[in-house]
Amino acid sequence: MSGEGAARYGEGVPPVLVASGLTKAVGAGRAARRLLDGVSLSVDADEVVAVLGRSGSGKSTLLNLLGGLDSPEEGTIVVAGEQLTGRGARRLPRIRLRHIGFVFQQFQLIEELSGAENVLLPTRLPGAPSGGARRAARLIDELGLRSVAAHLPHELSGGEQQRFAIARALVNDPELLLADEPTGSLDADNGAGVLELLRALSGRAVVIVTHEPDAAAIADRVFNLVDGQLFAAVPGRAP
């Protein structure tokens, strides 16, 4: 499943994602707690990085920062050559629209829209790249969703819903895909299918945060998030 972004970020080009010195705290006063303490991460195109950690370790916070959904107190983030940190509220959505795709644990499909309409939704947003309908049709076919494309989310299985969510994340051909516990709501078979799908994505940088060691098995690099800091682990092996 190759993407157009692959042509832009191949070998010899800067990493798709460069995050350095990210710091983020929650709470205030004595209750303040540092979730991220100087985290740095670089992910190339065609690379899958998994971040493992216990619940509450700050995995999702890291993902939100990398996707521009939240802002760090310190540090910088660059995605596909675009600086995320310090950007205004008008520019950030445009960067997300063109360069970043999200996959959520709870799928987050919109109930009123069919699976296909959910996939098409990002292509209808102002500023979306052209050719969205064509890419959506292709993704739906490639992910084997054509027969259920017109079904509403509650008429789909968990695996189907997550595949639609992945298609939606990819429809604007982003260079970076961020997946937050992508198999957390799926059974083992469906979870494995989704992980295969993420592994098969080529030409993109993929960051998966999860607490499930199986998800790490598909990653090129694996990190553990402990006490707000990232530690490299051996790929393909449970930490």
């Binding site: 069919s114 939704l121 209808r124 054509r146 494309a149 079904h151």
Partner: peptide, 13 residues
């Protein structure tokens, strides 16, 4: 819903 041709059921919503 009946899947539509071509668009895989994707209407212009």
């Amino acid at each position: 819903r009946r899947p539509s041709r071509g668009g895989g059921g994707a209407r212009r919503a």
